[in-house]
């Protein structure tokens, strides 16, 4: 980092350092507003993928309430019952914390494995809550989306890595 920074520069750098993960997740939430009208679930839930990639990349920077608030925002935008993303995202974070305390050495493949497990349970929970809400459908309907999400994770993780480099390299 340069030594001489004006106050406003410092403020700007600090802002991006702090809020880029949150802002990028919010942006991914708002991808749900894309004017695409589809008749079956095929597109991955980008908000969850981006948040998951940030969490696996930087485990230390999340406070307990961040996924809760982001989840609330996602619920409102995506039309899920309020509480769905709030609960699922926070549970995912707690589960990953437990994983972190057990598994000492991690690499790319391990990250993908944990991400895949998280995606599978998230998709299953989403389907099950839909079922509780009265939308009785086969789980097979979700399979294309599940596969797309698992395959999209490395790409999203790469994008998040680029964002992270930019965030820290200013």
């Amino acid at each position: 980092m340069r030594i001489a920074l004006t106050t406003s520069d410092v403020r700007r750098v600090q802002f991006w350092r702090r809020y880029l993960p949150i802002l990028s997740t919010v942006f991914a939430c708002s991808l749900g507003l894309l004017p695409i009208v589809v008749s079956s679930p095929v597109v991955p839930d980008f908000a969850f993928l981006v948040l998951l990639a940030w969490r696996l990349l930087r485990p230390e920077m999340w406070s307990a309430t961040t996924p809760l608030l982001l989840g609330f925002f996602n619920d409102l935008l995506a039309g899920h019952p309020v509480g769905q993303s709030m609960a699922l995202w926070t549970i995912t974070f707690i589960a990953l914390d437990m994983v972190d305390s057990r598994v000492v050495w991690r690499d790319y493949w391990m990250d993908w494995l944990f991400a895949s497990l998280a995606i599978i349970s998230y998709t299953f929970a989403d389907w099950y809550i839909g079922r509780l809400m009265g939308s009785v459908s086969e789980f097979a309907v979700m399979l294309p989306q599940l596969v797309a999400s698992v395959l999209a994770y490395p790409i999203i993780a790469r994008l998040v890595l680029i964002l992270d480099r930019w965030r820290l390299g200013q």
Binding site: A64, V82, G83, A87, I91
Partner: peptide, 20 residues
């Protein structure tokens, strides 16, 4: 932090229950 997280999950589940 964990207490807050677990509390948050419980709150979210309550909201979800109300919504469902």
């Amino acid at each position: 932090g964990y207490v807050v997280a677990v509390g948050g999950v419980l709150l979210a589940l309550l909201l979800l229950f109300l919504a469902v």
